[in-house]
């Protein structure tokens, strides 16, 4: 029988993979953004799992809002990405060192 832990461990694996993704693709900001989406998915997975097993609908409401915010976030993130690409002819994270100067 599939219990709550199965889902939680699955989401933990997803989370770990997304962390690894951020480290592996340090230069590619698009993949970093996608890893963040993956991370959010893992978080949502947790919410859904608890909500479903605890029979509490509030968790799902939270997921709903997370989705909303994540959508807005990725829209803005991609807009910034385009702006970045336009100004620097690339999306290399290593080039983004304006803060340093």
């Amino acid at each position: 029988m599939i219990g709550m832990n199965h889902f939680l461990i699955l989401s933990a694996i997803l989370f770990a993979i997304s962390i690894m993704g951020i480290f592996l693709n340090r230069k590619n900001i698009i993949v970093v953004l996608m890893a963040i989406e993956l991370m959010l998915l893992a978080v949502n997975f947790n919410f859904i799992t608890f909500s479903s097993f605890l029979h509490n609908i509030d968790g799902q409401i939270f997921v709903f809002f997370t989705l909303t915010v994540a959508a807005a976030e990725s829209a803005i993130g991609l807009a910034i990405l385009i702006l970045l690409f336009r100004n620097m002819r690339g999306v290399n994270v290593q080039d983004m060192t304006q803060l340093k100067e």
């Binding site: 699955l10 993979i17 690894m20 592996l24 993956l38």
Partner: peptide, 9 residues
């Protein structure tokens, strides 16, 4: 899911 997530990164 795990394989596709791995492929993403």
């Amino acid at each position: 899911l795990v394989i596709s997530a791995l492929q993403v990164i």
